[in-house]
Amino acid sequence: MSPPHVFHQLEDPRMTLTHLQRLEAESIHIMREVVAEAEKPVMLYSIGKDSAVMLHLAKKAFYPSPPPFPLMHVDTTWKFQDMYALREKAAQDAGMELIVHQNPEAAERGINPFDHGPLHTDMWKTEGLKQALDKYGFDAAFGGARRDEEKSRAKERIFSFRTATHGWDPKNQRPELWNLYNARKKKGESIRVFPLSNWTELDIWQYIMAENVEIVPLYFSARRPTYEYEGGLFMADDIDRLEKVMGYRPEIAERSIRFRTLGCFPLTGAVESEAATLQEVVQEMLLTTTSERQGRVIDKDAGDASMEKKKQEGYF
């Protein structure tokens, strides 16, 4: 077991909790409420840094028991190799069952980010998630979304109700007062629960630093094989597969790059960077002038309100 971690105390005769302590306590409270009230919860695990923090909080919430629900990755088959490696290790370390779901229809039709554009996200992720929730009968799913990520998420509840067909109706969400969450639902309905709602990107990084949370090495700069595509810089994580889908072998150049968010490798833009430590990454984030989601293509396809549209369709 790791040595007791003590947050620095403020200069007050009483012990004023730091913002990270309060965020941690709130997230733990939320997870325990779900476990107490839902029939079959699951934690959606995307292998990104937010997922890593969420998983870490779950371990803390139920210690010394392992988290009493499985981890589930809705896979597109196009993630970075480093992500797959951490996925297996993280589940094992937490003592949790790992469920990996790949939409069989998307696999059969060979859906990929080059030929199919938005359909790639829709089939692998949106449809894949719905299928997986239905297949296993999960009635509550933890997700790592934060309210600061995108404007329409600022109004998302912590407990977000979905109809039996996984639809989200912004007009029919429940008010959340105090720390009281109403988790009651009819058969077939489900809840998406966002324990990190009140965390910001900086909070996440600070917590990773304070708690030594393990994250995918791709967040840190290293020399990696890259190629340019439609004005963006990408990592050639699986060059043979890229060639097969793209129809040609992209020109590879080694560059010092890292990633600010992680998704499918052909869709996740890299940034050239020398930030190789947590401190340097945070420093770069604080000095940087573009927002986090900009590196991801998903927000761009329908203008400003696209995330909201995706949510109504059932994307997380």
């Binding site: 947050f7 620095h8 105390q9 403020l10 004023t16 909790l17 730091t18 913002h19 990270l20 309060r22 965020l23 900086l202 600070q206 630093m209 304070a210 401190q279 340097e280 945070v282 420093q283 604080l286 000095l287």
Partner: peptide, 16 residues
């Protein structure tokens, strides 16, 4: 820019 460690130390101790 000058001393990220000192900055982070400072911000680790925020209240909410």
């Amino acid at each position: 820019a000058d001393d990220i460690e000192a900055y982070l130390e400072q911000h680790q101790n925020k209240s909410m």
